[in-house]
Design a binder for these strands. Structure first.
Lengths: 213, 213
DNA sequence: CCGTACATGTAGCAACCGCTACACCCAAAT
DNA sequence: ATTTGGGTGTAGCGGTTGCTACATGTACGG
């Protein structure tokens, strides 16, 4: 099965595969119903992608190429977070994007990949690990830019990343999106004061007469 | 398939089924390999449980009957949380229990059930929803006992529950347990001040001249 | 000593799985 | 006019799935 030279149809087909996986999940996905829903045959899917596993891998890679969240847009609208208030605006913009129907509809698939990554680390392990690591790294550099040292920045970034992960996963279980939304802002209320003071190495009593506002 | 009257063997078999599911997951679980690993035949599993679905349901119900976390023990060792410090001790005891090998080994299964509950809400939906709701309710009543009103208590409980959920799930993806451990305590550092003040209705500009230290 | 009920092994069913062999269509190149 | 090669349909392979029919073993009460 050499790679057939038709990138256009291949890409179009892959897009529809991605959409199908988004609606129907990965675990119950089988070639024949998928092909039927796409108006083709399983034969064609294998002709284009060679293997079910490769097809799924390419469909998932499509998410990396065109990510769910538009971080660039968030950075443009809120500005690069150089202070706690900016970081908060940045996070709130990201959370708003998570509330969009398209993004929210993709969350079950991410949960599924996360579950699969534990069961089959060789196949799906890197996918989820890269996502978590990517966000943690991004936020770590942001906190580092706010004046924290590496360890403090990593810790704060982990708190923020993992807490948001939980706030996104829990509503998938109980459906309480509004409750999670309120909790998200309450979380920011609680965390933001901890972002304000770099306290490089706390030299005993620093009076912090920083009257910023 | 009338219920066979042998509760002893049935229970013993079910225990081993639970252990197998704990090690090998639910999605790839099929009767014949399971029976082979247990030294029986698929015929016997169906004889005792009638159906694969019922067998899995009973194995999962075993977790509800004998829960992972010993909340009673936590309440005894740390005391019922009647103040923020007590709540913090309670949460730290629970987190310590989550670090135990047995409990940690069960987390992938919970992640799997959580993923399955989105895909098959009729079958697995209530399981995960009940777990999240149970913790949220418990913590809501705790926060209510701390002086918050219902809404505030619910919000704080959601923050705590969901954030801890994320802190437990993320290491399953990237393996950074120690990092999550540090982040958990940092999260408590950030949240605990918010537990101290009931602040019934926040009156706009609060100067927060709180000179705690 | 036998009958009956619980327990278990063997064989197999129908459906589905990923995947492949093979023939065919048709447009473009030779 | 014929060859070539990308696209496609059909049929089927070997395997696994949950589940069942049937026969047999075994232990115990009559």
């Amino acid at each position: 099965m050499p790679r057939p030279p038709d990138p256009a149809k291949r890409r179009a087909l892959l897009d529809r595969v991605r959409a199908y996986a988004l609606r129907n999940g990965l675990t119950d996905l089988s070639l024949r119903p998928l092909a039927r829903a796409l108006g083709t045959s399983d034969r064609m899917l294998l002709y284009y992608f060679g293997t079910k596993e490769r097809m799924i891998a390419e469909a998932l890679a499509l998410f990396e190429r065109r990510p769910l969240l538009r971080v660039r847009t968030a950075l443009e609208t809120t500005g690069s977070p150089t202070d706690p208030a900016g970081l908060r605006r940045f996070m709130e913009e990201l959370w708003r994007q998570f509330g969009e129907p398209d993004v929210r509809a993709a969350l079950p698939l991410y949960l599924e990949v996360m579950s699969a990554s534990v069961l089959h680390p060789d196949r799906y392990g890197p996918v989820m690990r890269d996502i978590v690591t990517e966000w943690t790294d991004l936020l770590t550099s942001v906190f580092h830019g706010l004046g924290m040292n590496r360890d403090q920045a990593l810790t704060q970034a982990t708190v923020l990343t993992d807490a948001c992960l939980g706030l996104l996963m829990a509503p998938l279980a109980n459906g309480h999106w509004a409750q999670a939304d309120t909790a998200f802002h309450a979380l920011l209320d609680a965390l933001e004061p901890g972002w304000r003071i770099p306290e490089s190495t706390r030299t005993s009593a620093d009076s912090t007469a920083r009257t910023a506002n």
